[in-house]
């Protein structure tokens, strides 16, 4: 657990690393009937290889827009998103997205939901890998259950397996646990931490919960609203694996207050 792969690059010093993903002066306007909405305003963000970075900010600040642009689901109005050297303008096989509310297809049972990306990519599903992942998230034996028969937490675990099954190197998570109750949310946060530590994937995690962001992240990027821009990045140097207990320590709460203050001062 302690000697997990961290992709090396993140630890070789902050000045000389090749970022996993680089967002460069990204601008995004939405054209609506009631006028243009400036969703992203020259956002710069380097995502280091193997890191867990959280993006946090008030509702409607453009967090989801940023994530969708990183996933290649939206075009930027100007600026660029680079994965390594490659410019992202459409979805990329190395990138997988995890959505709010699990986003399972209600007409497919759990296992066929997990097969969906394989069907789309026209490759045979890696059944051993999928079963291992299902066991890891505690969903063995639920293959034939339909989403409506699963709890919110189980649905989101299934959607994590769906994304991990195609073995992407970058996971983009869009408020994945926002709709879950507090207990399930803690559970899911522990799970995603252990998955991250075991697999060494790079994770960009959007949330509006400051404690969740601090608990999970190596770095927390704070976004401001209208126009959305990244105002500050905090380093979180709490040792891992982190437990839920640390969320009540004075230093953790101090960090929460610090980030809260930086959002409110805007």
């Amino acid at each position: 657990m302690q000697s997990h792969a961290r992709g090396g690059a993140a630890q070789t010093g902050s000045s000389e690393f090749e970022p996993k993903m680089r967002v460069q002066s990204a601008d995004k306007f939405y054209h609506t009937a009631s006028g243009d909405v400036h969703a992203l305003d020259s956002v710069d963000l380097d995502v280091r290889d193997g890191e867990f970075i959280c993006v946090i900010g008030p509702s409607g600040c453009g967090k989801t827009t940023l994530l969708w642009c990183m996933a290649g689901l939206h075009d930027l109005s100007s600026g660029s998103v680079l994965l390594g050297q490659e410019r992202i303008v459409s979805p990329h096989p190395e990138i997988a997205m995890i959505f709010q509310d699990a986003n399972l297809l209600p007409w497919r049972d759990l296992i066929r939901n997990i097969y969906l990306p394989f069907e789309i990519k026209r490759v045979k599903p890696d059944i051993d890998r999928i079963q291992k992942l299902l066991a890891q998230v505690g969903l063995e034996g639920f293959d034939r259950k339909y989403p409506r028969e699963l709890s919110g937490g189980m649905q989101q675990r299934a959607s994590i397996v769906r994304s991990l099954a195609v073995d992407p190197s970058l996971l983009l998570m869009d408020e994945p646990f926002g709709a879950l109750d507090a207990f399930t949310r803690d559970e899911m946060n522990l799970l995603i931490q252990s998955i991250w530590m075991e697999t060494g994937k790079t994770i960009v995690f959007v949330t509006h919960s400051i404690p969740e962001a601090i608990f999970l992240a190596d770095r927390v990027a704070v976004m401001s609203a209208r126009p959305g821009r990244i105002t500050r990045i905090f380093d979180i140097d709490i040792p891992r694996p982190r437990t839920i207990d640390i969320t009540t320590t004075p230093s953790f709460i101090g960090k929460v207050l610090e980030i809260k203050a930086s959002i409110e001062s805007r």
């Binding site: 969708w68 996933a71 290649g72 689901l73 979805p91 096989p93 990138i95 997988a96 997205m97 959505f99 709010q100 509310d101 986003n103 297809l105 007409w107 497919r108 969906l116 990306p117 069907e119 789309i120 990519k121 195609v166």
Partner: peptide, 25 residues
């Protein structure tokens, strides 16, 4: 939109979105 975005994020083309998302829906 979320389900279409899901299929898109895995690289689905318009026809696949039609057969795998729109028709079942």
């Amino acid at each position: 939109l979320a389900k279409i975005a899901l299929a898109r994020s895995f690289g689905a083309n318009t026809f696949q979105i039609f057969t795998k998302i729109r028709i079942p829906m």
